[in-house]
Each structure stands twice: as structure tokens, then as C-alpha cells.
Amino acid sequence: MSAPVIPTSPTVDAVMAAQRAKGFTTRSIKRESKGQALRLALSMVDLTTLEGKDSPEKIESICRKAVSPMPERCDIPSVAAVCFYPSMVKIAAEALAGTGVKVASVATGFPSGQFPLDVRLRDTEEAIQDGADEIDMVINRGAFLSGRRQEVYDEILAVAKLCRDAWTSDKHVHLKVILETGELETLDNVRLASDLSIVALGESGLLDEPGGGFIKTSTGKISPAATMPVTLVMLEAIRDAHRRDGVYVGMKPAGGIRAAKPAWHYLCMVKETLEGLDGSAGCPWLSPSLFRFGASSLANDILRQIVKLETGTYPAAYDFSEA
């Protein structure tokens, strides 16, 4: 493979990133705007379960929840997607056929990625064959931290090409690249890994469609998972890629976002970082096609807040189905 044309990544001022990220938590979002933010955030959720004890029954139940988060209310939007292990993709694809809710599958030896490349590629292929609309791959952090960046790039490109080659006229498989930022040590590394992934996504042709490729913070398996400074750095990489090449790369913070309030803090961050880039009035990234939350308990807290906002009464946890 030819050497990647990775733009030199700027260094990140960690103190300023933390300070800037903190600023987004001070926006006053009340009443109508809160209601809107809650609904938008719900529509961006990738409802996730990634446990060894996942069973077909649990997957079916989560799929039902994904389509109608509050079955008694048809004005509550569906979530964007469900996110499972590859072995569950067939069941999910069947359960969600025709609903508009996407099936995402983690692949490439999730969560460690410590498997031979051919096994990781085969993993991806099978998930696509089984009906996955989106693949959440992990990067090779060991190689990245050892400085073998070309290897990381080549592997991302190989997985991305698999997804791109599977495109048909009516179905475009999307790819999310999980950086596992909790293992990358520094924000400089986060920025570098983001740029590397974005270039590989572009090279593969997945970015021919806005949101064909995402970068994602974490697997959710290690702590810290998604944090606001890390997400800010990744959003800035997305912003710079748009300025450079006009591409629309999606963003998915995952893990650790359990409550509605942090979710709208993230939305503020997206708006203020990526607004007005292409001369349009709105922010294209404030849409499930370009922004997702990877979460399992976030959806229920959003529902709680919606009910609280409308009725003035705090609902109990048992008022909503677990899955």
C-alpha cells in the first residue's frame, strides 16, 4: 500500500481543551430548547449491549425498545441504532427490518483488537453478511503506541475497504473507528489517531457519503471512556478535515454518558465547534447521521427527563423498561 498522506497533526493544549470543554457545561438549556435537545439526543442514541451474557431474547427486547423507547407514546422518536456483538446481528437485523433503526455491530476482535488481521477482517465480513448496517471497529492501540502508525492506517483502510466494497445501490455500510482514547495516554495521540482514521476513511471512499465514516471515542470496556475534552479534540479533527477536504466525518462518544444533562452538554459542544462550516445556517452534525451517543442507560434517563419536563413529576426508574 502507498504511504498515507496524513496531514501533520497540530499539538493539543490539554489545559485549554479541558477548560474549553468545561465551558460547554454552563449553557442554560431550559423548557422548549431542553425538550428539543432531549428528543434530538434520544434520536442519536446507539442503544448498546456488549456483554458475554447477551442472549437472543435480550437482543429482541432491546430492539423493541430501540424502535419505541416509550411504547405508549408515538411522539417519542426511535433511537438511531442498536449496537451488539457480531453473533447477535442476524437476530437484530430480522427484528429491525423496515423500522429505520440501524444495526451496528462491533467487529475486528472487539474490544482489544488483539487478533490476527485476517481474523479481524473475517469478523467484519461476517457481520456485514449477516446484515449489519454499521461496523464499529477497534484500532490496533498496541501498534499505535509503539509508533507503528502505518500499520494502524493500513488496517483501518483494509476494514474500511471491506465496508465500501459491500455498498449496494440501496444499502451503504458505514464504519465507526474506535480509538479507545482511554488507552491513548495523551490528547496529542487522540488528535493523531483521529487524523489517521479520517484519512484512511477518506482513502477508502466511505466518505463519499456524509457520515459514511465515524470516529468513536471508546469501547466502553475501559475507564475513562468518553470525556468532553477528548470529544472536543476529535470534533476539532473533524472540523479541520471538513475545511481541508470538505468531508463530513461523524462523531460518536461512547461509554460513561449515562444522564441527559451531560448529553446536552455534548450537543452544545458539537454546535459550537462545527457550526456554520459549510456556509449553511444550521449545524449538519446535529443529526443522527453525523453524531451518535453510544450508551445503554442514557435512553431511560432522557425519557425520565422528558416526562419530568412535561408533567412536573419525577418518574421512578421502574416506570421505564430496562431494555
Binding site: G312, T313, Y314, P315, A316, A317, D319
Partner: peptide, 8 residues
Amino acid sequence: PHFASHRE
């Protein structure tokens, strides 16, 4: 009123 109505 909030003691009374909080469902938890």
C-alpha cells in the same frame, strides 16, 4: 408537593 409526587 414534590415529596408527594416523586415516584421514586
